[in-house]
Design a protein around this nucleic acid. Structure first.
Lengths: 186, 186
DNA sequence: TTTGAAACTTATTTAGTAGTAAGTAGGTTT
DNA sequence: AAACCTACTTACTACTAAATAAGTTTCAAA
């Protein structure tokens, strides 16, 4: 069984992806875990601490994902699909991604949290840049311009796509991402 | 001179684009306008009312912009650049767009506000779709797939680009949008 | 068997939040 | 002149937020 600390981070993550950092409280977490407000503060003295923990856990998840995909020798196409699958999961559950949620709130957050949001973005951005670069070399992908710029464009479509999916519909996301992939594949 | 009601909406808009709907209060507005909290409630009884007013004002701005551009006979390229200029202005002022901000918070907002967010998105989406369709016909633009899908992709890049610009840098936005435009122009 | 740290609860504080009721100054209408 | 309206202020309610101090339980190691 997961320990309380991990459960708090998991729940906070879900609340952030659903409502945003400024729209959930320690009381929400305490209620869901059937503990008291102060117990959450025991593990994460300030909300800032909790925010940092959430973003670091995200980085750890991505690190593990990248590692597993490379160990399994998954192709560049497969790696891109794995990333898209994560966003499909978000959209299905009416969630947006951590980058979109925390990015929108970035100016209300402390320096420490801002740094972790940036680290999160850069980690995924560098990964996608590498996928594109290697995939182009192998003639799997076609695109104009720099791989890093194209990677940013792909992330933009995933991030904003997930946001818009909740405003319009999940289908809107699927259509856009399908077209994005079609343009990319040779 | 602008009346108080308009000033409240303008200020609320700025606060939403900077911090998000759930991260500003009536007190922020009252303080800035040197009036009392209750005076804001006089004009907008609930925060929901204020949210609706902000989104309707946005729609009105876009409607006027589209009208002016068409009256002046601005080309499809010029129209797209006008949209991009708005986002450049946002990025310069460390703001995100109303769609990105309110879209991120959509599940914390009432039905009435959600509808206006959707209306806002659809208005801009249809406009960009028309620009692309007409521009392609005139051999100004090149793109694969449906104009409406490509329009959504452009909006995704603008929306998420503005969000990421605050996390990374304004330059990151400019690079991505420059590449986006380059891919689009014949 | 004691001890001591980890993981809580209880109870409270401080500082906001949206929202409202009642009153008022100054202008407009009848 | 009386009645009314607009745009507020004053003073408040009810509630929620994050945060903390002090006390309690639990359980494993000495």
């Amino acid at each position: 069984m997961k320990d309380t600390k991990t459960e708090i981070v998991d729940l906070a993550t879900n609340l952030i992806l659903e409502r945003g950092f400024n729209a959930f409280s320690y009381a929400d977490i305490a209620k869901a875990l059937q503990i008291k407000n102060a117990a959450v503060h025991y593990h994460f003295p300030t909300k800032e601490d909790l925010g940092v923990a959430v973003m670091k856990q995200q980085q750890s998840f991505v690190k593990t994902l990248i590692h597993n995909l490379k160990v399994q020798g998954v192709s560049e196409i497969g790696q891109l699909m794995a990333l898209i699958d994560i966003y499909n999961g978000c959209v299905t559950n009416k969630l947006i991604c951590a980058l979109g949620s925390m990015g929108s709130d970035v100016l209300t957050l402390s320096e420490r949290v801002q740094v972790e949001i940036k680290n999160d973005y850069v980690q995924v951005w560098e990964w996608v840049s590498q996928i594109l670069e290697a995939g182009k070399e192998k003639n799997l992908f076609r695109f104009e311009g720099q791989a890093s710029t194209k990677a940013a464009m792909i992330l933009n479509n995933l991030m904003a796509g997930a946001i818009v999916a909740r405003v319009l519909s999940p289908q809107h996301f699927k259509d856009v991402i399908a077209q994005m992939v079609a343009e990319l594949l040779v």
